[in-house]
Design a protein around this nucleic acid. Structure first.
Lengths: 128, 128
DNA sequence: GAAACTTACATGCACGTGCATTGGATGTCA
DNA sequence: TGACATCCAATGCACGTGCATGTAAGTTTC
């Protein structure tokens, strides 16, 4: 009984590992080779692009952090890289000068639009 | 039609991400805090412990590499850490002096036996 | 209004990982 | 046998990550 549960749980875990590693590895490679984007960076662009329609192209760091599996420090550096590449701009919030707004630049929007089909194709290939 | 497939694929991916991150994070923490083992290191002990019954306690690096989602170099260093902690010993193979055998030490077996219930408990909690 | 506390983001640091390379051992073919 | 390709494991290096901390701004308590 207990042993049966353990076996189920183990196969579910190993299946999760397999899917996660193969998919994230392929995503990483294809996004890097084809669009010079790491997976974390793509994910930030994706969230920004999504929230652009809703909030006038802005998103706070804290909102991003909540939607990603990334520590606050790692997110900060990811955004730094995106900013250095001109894909995103930081802007301080007038009402709370601790907070930062993020905005996609036109180049960032363009890069995301170009990369998104690649992303979608990998997911299909691995998960369909 | 196509859109439906994409949506399925996306939810499947985000679910995989969620399960992977929460579970591996908790595994990492509990194994580290409770048994001073990283997840990769535990995984090596697990495979060695399993193959002990079958092959007299030996396993080749290449066999480990094939069973883990880890590069050759990362595996090499993981084994180095385990060796430094006295949980594993390396031995050159007499028939192919390029290859390395790995063996669990008694301390390694003991550490694994102690850690395995923790590992199993996390998997149950997260995946059951 | 001052002091203590909390929140948001950035940064120093240590660590694990992957890629590329190296060094040594084995296999192959003329 | 000798030359060349292949294979195995280790290592230099760059990079992304998390933890702990720093800095600045906002909030609470008296």
């Amino acid at each position: 009984m207990e042993a049966v549960v353990d076996e189920d749980v183990c196969t579910k875990w190993s299946e999760t590992l397999r899917v996660y590693h193969t998919t994230s590895c392929e995503l990483e490679n294809e996004l890097q080779d084809g669009h010079d984007l790491g997976l974390s960076e793509f994910e930030v662009l994706k969230i920004l692009s999504r929230s652009c329609g809703k909030h006038g192209g802005k998103a706070k760091m804290k909102e991003l952090e909540a939607e990603m599996y990334l520590s606050q420090s790692a997110l900060s550096r990811t955004v730094t890289r995106l900013e250095k590449d001109g894909l995103v701009t930081r802007a301080t919030c007038d009402f709370d000068r601790r907070a930062m707004f993020l905005m996609l630049t036109p180049a960032g929007q363009e890069r995301y639009t170009a990369a998104e089909p690649t992303y979608r194709a990998v997911l299909r290939r691995q998960l369909a």
